[in-house]
Design a protein around this nucleic acid. Structure first.
Lengths: 217, 217
DNA sequence: CTCAATAATCTTGTATACAAGATTTCCTTG
DNA sequence: CAAGGAAATCTTGTATACAAGATTATTGAG
């Protein structure tokens, strides 16, 4: 992994987990001093961050960590909702043993993450792993990766919404239902389940009321 | 529109319509002479082209116009197929007069493009306009734009497949069926229609046999 | 002539000086 | 003191010299 890729991964991580708050200035000169690298390669990094909406570039003024765009969040959730309904239905009853074990193991690790040190961080990692694995098992990892390139806003929205532990328990439970459906096709209500799992709270005012300073107006 | 944006639009256009063939070398120095601009801003352009898969960058070696990646084509077609089925169903019977007129006008212009000078170029423009308008009317233009950022491979695939005039007539006819469904919800077979409209020929060997030199192996 | 080693010449990657616009500071003027 | 304007100082944008790797050409040995 090149030094540029390390810096990019580091900045992306800090923006996604809100260590770098929306509105924070990312000056090329400050970054070049912090990472002991000239401006040119850092500009490459910032260019990519801009293309993936991590930052907004104001020419001759500066680069700001982007504010959370709720419109983008809603659109990405809709996209995932539609896609995952289709993918899960196509996969139902056709899961190989290997895939089943993989998903069960992820579920267990996600359950264990609750309540532990640094819970949210680990929980979200396993949450992504669960959905990514379903995409992978359906031969659609390409689309998972495509969505990941446009999910900064959703990623940060999700963190702010998952601060409560009872929500985490609910999410794991819904994952169990999804796995049950994949194995037995029992539930006739898979569409509503996916819809609820991904879209719940999207219209609530929780974020606007509690994190207004992070939200794009 | 800045000079950099003009250059980027120009290169994108030439790559999409295969004027710049897959494998063509895009050297920074050659481009800087062609456009009378230093390497630095051109590198910005090339960086973005690389992120959107227009070119492949081989460090210290050169930049090549990317070969058509059929895997990407299939995934994008699947994505559009799933999304548009859902969008069209949600829009059926709810089309306002303005939207209806918009789609009818596009259909007419697309029909008129057939057989004229520079037919394919105009035809494809109106083909995109039809689908984009449907996304827009459903409040999903965001997702249309998202897909456009990843569609170089699909775009070139499509051009090579649409070289025959009878295929163009068939496409317009399918658009008429889609519009009929949006207005009357008559056809019970909208899902198969969308599937056929977007996915036909994806598994044929036409490209591999006739344009092997453009295809990523 | 053949082949290998070496040198020249490509390529992109990086550092840096300077340009140009935006902002802030500070000083002058009323 | 207040307000306006100029200058200093920020910011990113551009041009260019140089670095370093990859390729190609050349040259010399056998």
């Amino acid at each position: 992994m090149s030094i540029k890729e390390q810096i990019m991964a580091s900045l992306k991580h800090e923006i996604r987990n809100l260590t770098l708050k929306p509105g924070t200035i990312l000056s090329e000169t400050v970054l070049s001093e912090r990472f002991q690298l000239s401006r040119t390669p850092l500009r490459d990094v910032l260019k990519q961050l801009a293309l993936e909406s991590y930052i907004d570039v104001y020419p001759k003024k500066g680069n700001l960590v982007s504010f959370i765009d709720l419109e983008s969040v809603e659109q990405i959730i809709y996209l995932r909702s539609v896609l995952e309904k289709e993918i899960i239905k196509s996969l139902a009853g056709k899961l190989a043993l290997k895939g089943t074990l993989e998903l069960k193991e992820i579920l267990e690790k996600q359950q264990n993450a609750i309540g532990r040190e640094d819970a949210l961080e680990h929980f979200l990692t396993w949450d992504d792993a669960f959905h990514q694995t379903i995409f992978k098992l359906a031969g659609r990892e390409f689309l998972w990766n495509l969505i990941q390139q446009s999910n900064v806003h959703y990623e940060r929205y999700r963190r702010l919404h998952m601060l409560k532990q009872e929500k985490l328990e609910e999410i794991v439970q819904e994952h169990r239902y999804i796995l049950d459906y994949l194995l037995n096709q029992e539930s006739g209500r898979i569409e509503e389940l996916i819809h609820h799992h991904l879209r719940e709270d999207i219209n609530s005012l929780y974020l606007q009321e509690n994190f207004a300073e992070y939200i794009k107006s």
